[in-house]
Design a protein around this nucleic acid. Structure first.
Lengths: 215, 215
DNA sequence: TGCGCACGACTGTGATCACAAACCGGTCAT
DNA sequence: ATGACCGGTTTGTGATCACAGTCGTGCGCA
């Protein structure tokens, strides 16, 4: 009985399309309001319309794309109220996730977070917006994975996805090298086992992007 | 120019299938671990496999259904950790929603909530589990609609959906007529404009179901 | 009697096609 | 010049089909 349960021999076509579009959206590579067509997506990924439609349905269900009344798909045109809401959701979810990760955060995790943090600084110096966004999300995901709360983490990722199209322009104007500042506060709070400090640091980090847009 | 923009002349087939399955899941009419087949769903709704598959994709994306490694779909088998997590999510999201609704809660809303509450009592007396669940959710949705936070409300509904398959058995053993107790506390806090009291009441109401399962 | 194995039915996947509605030009009348 | 109208083209929708993988059942063998 050497039934090697290979988890992913060759991902289904609709899965490939989904992942491709999802990362592009989450990293802000598609501007808000951009229109997409099923045939265009299908041709781009070298598949037929069927898997393209299924991936679109998933992304629409996750709020990453919107469907016009006639079925046209596009990246959502984001309003200020929506951004405020999504930022509030990030604060709610991620503060809780960080708090749950705190008792499980041993030194190896903190080391890893510091490594990621320096990678973020490099991306900032390089003015690499996509690299910055990706590494920044990796920082948060690495921490929250320790919370052992998959459903909560999935919701947080959904919020990141919905913020994707604005991330680009949001973080485009934020190439100050002060960005990992709150990350350092997070790491310090983790080291000290300081839960209130951690909650405040995460909340500050998450809502910092909002403030510059509200002006 | 009498272009009558009818919003929904005849809902698309995949939409009908989606709504049908969604309400059945959210109301707990499908037990956990139940297996579903595309052809079965298609035949039941009188459509082909295509719209059935699309609705399944949406529901899987929302966490209402799970996909086995071979693509088989079934309602999720829910563990205690998952329930704890989902209850925590309900608490986080709904406390925030209630708090945001509080300043906008005028007397007409409170009257409506009281009406819904008495309907809940009737369902309890009738031992009508599905009616109880539906009316209970209507109570919460009516309140949260006032929060003017559509993304947050959508997330809360997603959590309800994920809790659906367990709701039935959870609330099945809870046919004590004490159920609208926390609802009365919520209404009282709304009347008094007591935000801390409201937060506590919502949190208590939302997590009450968990406690009896944790034992 | 118990265990493995093969066969058949079933299930999800993806491609293709026909169809209806929406969109987008240019054109014409006012 | 501005507006409505009308064609062709594009777009989403849903049905159907062929195919590959999976699951289960019953048979056969030890």
């Amino acid at each position: 009985m050497l039934m090697q349960t290979r988890p992913d021999p060759s991902p289904a076509a609709h899965e490939r399309v989904y992942r491709g579009l999802r990362t592009r959206i989450m990293l802000g590579e598609i501007p808000p309001g951009e229109a997409l067509t099923l045939r265009g997506i299908a041709k781009e990924f070298g598949v037929s319309m069927t898997p393209a439609r299924e991936s679109i349905r998933r992304l629409v269900a996750e709020g990453a794309l919107t469907l016009s009344s006639s079925g046209r798909v596009s990246t959502p045109e984001i309003t200020n109220e929506r951004i405020e809401e999504l930022a509030a959701l990030r604060a709610l979810l991620e503060v809780e996730l960080a708090s749950r990760a705190l008792p499980r955060a041993h030194i190896a995790l903190i080391d890893r977070l510091q490594t990621i943090n320096s990678t973020i600084s490099e991306a900032v110096d390089r003015h690499d917006a996509v690299g910055y966004i990706r590494t920044n999300l990796e920082f948060h995901r690495t921490l929250y994975l320790r919370a052992q709360a998959p459903a909560m983490l999935a919701m947080a990722e959904t919020v990141w996805l919905q913020l994707g199209p604005t991330m680009r322009k949001l973080y485009g104007r934020l190439h100050r090298k002060e960005s990992p500042h709150f990350h350092r506060l997070i790491i310090a709070a983790l080291k000290a086992g300081d839960e209130p400090g951690l909650r405040l640091a995460v909340r500050s980090d998450v809502t910092q992007g909002l403030r510059m847009l509200a002006t």
